[in-house]
């Protein structure tokens, strides 16, 4: 099993935390566990966690900077704040453990902005269609496959404003199992 912190060395130290009555397991390698020991079990000092990583055995990462805003891990040590929203992806690895120790989980389960929710829905629909397409091809149902390919193509070329109504349109498309040849493309427009 690899160390939860550096993900490079074998974990030899197994810790159990109690966070608000829930146990949380942390598997660390020897050097990481020493960094960890310096902090109290509830929360690692913010900066030290990010920088502590670099200091122990990921020195090359300390020089890592956000290509969007130029923020580096060293700046985090000074400020305790990140540079921009892109930084969350750039420093994702170091942040992951910090967030796990700070919060109840590592995944947001609450509100999603309406515009973004619409994009998520569309992506999910596209993925579902692509899956159906692959299935149709594998069972050699080419007419069906052509219909899915057509729907995918049309969805990928729908302008942003029409996206929100796309799910309803799709349902209508998918319900009647009528002739689904490429020519049927225009029948619903």
């Amino acid at each position: 099993m690899l160390c939860d912190l550096c993900k490079t060395k074998e974990a030899t130290v197994f810790l159990t935390h109690l966070v608000e009555g829930n146990t949380q397991n942390l598997n660390l390698c020897e050097p990481c566990s020493q960094v960890h020991d310096m902090h109290d079990s509830m929360g690692f000092a913010l900066a030290d966690l990010l920088l502590g990583l670099g200091a122990s055995h990921q020195i090359e990462k300390a020089a890592l900077a956000c290509p969007h805003c130029g923020f580096s891990q060293r700046d985090f040590k000074k400020q305790g704040r990140l540079g921009c929203s892109v930084c969350y992806d750039i420093f994702a690895e170091g942040l992951a453990l910090m967030l796990r120790n700070m919060h109840r989980g590592v995944t947001h389960t609450g509100k999603v902005p309406r515009k973004i929710a619409a994009i998520y829905q569309r992506t999910a629909e596209l993925e579902a269609l692509k899956k159906s397409l692959a299935q149709a091809i594998s069972k050699e149902a080419y007419e069906e496959a052509a219909r899915y390919r057509d729907l995918i193509h049309r969805m990928e070329h729908t302008p942003a404003q029409q996206k929100e109504n796309s799910s309803q349109a799709l349902e209508e498309e998918l319900l009647p199992p009528k002739n689904a040849l490429p020519g049927a493309k225009n029948s619903h427009q």
Binding site: Y88, D89, L99, H103, V106, H108, K111, V112, K115
Partner: peptide, 30 residues
């Protein structure tokens, strides 16, 4: 918040939710 979203693009991460300057506020930002 919902009305503001119409005109402002808030930083939102698929996994982490609303992004904030300090990681301690990330998620709901609430």
């Amino acid at each position: 918040d919902t009305q503001l979203e119409e005109n402002l693009s808030f930083a939102f991460h698929r996994k982490l939710g609303y992004l904030t300057a300090c990681p301690s506020n990330v998620g709901t930002g609430m």
